Amino acid sequence: MKAFRVFYSTAGRSTRAIVLSESDSTLEKSLSLKDPDYRVGDSYSRITNKRELPLSSVPVKELSVGELFKLLGKEY
Rank of each mutant, 00 (worst) to 15 (best):
M1Y: 02
M1W: 02
K2D: 05
K2R: 15
A3C: 05
A3H: 01
R5T: 09
F7V: 12
Y8G: 04
Y8N: 02
A11W: 01
R13Q: 04
R13C: 00
S14K: 11
S14P: 04
A17Q: 11
A17C: 13
A17H: 13
I18M: 12
L20A: 09
L20T: 04
E22Y: 08
E22I: 06
S23W: 08
S23A: 14
S23V: 12
L27M: 07
E28A: 09
K29M: 07
L31W: 02
S32K: 01
L33F: 05
K34P: 02
K34E: 00
D37M: 07
R39S: 02
R39K: 14
D42N: 10
D42A: 14
D42H: 13
S43G: 00
S43T: 05
Y44W: 01
R46P: 00
T48L: 12
T48H: 05
K50A: 11
K50N: 04
R51F: 02
R51L: 12
E52K: 08
L53D: 07
L53N: 05
L53M: 10
P54R: 03
P54Y: 03
L55F: 11
S56M: 08
V58I: 09
P59N: 09
V60W: 04
K61T: 08
E62Q: 09
V65D: 14
G66V: 09
G66A: 10
E67A: 04
E67H: 01
L68S: 13
L68T: 14
L71M: 15
L72R: 12
G73S: 06
K74V: 14
E75F: 03
Y76H: 06
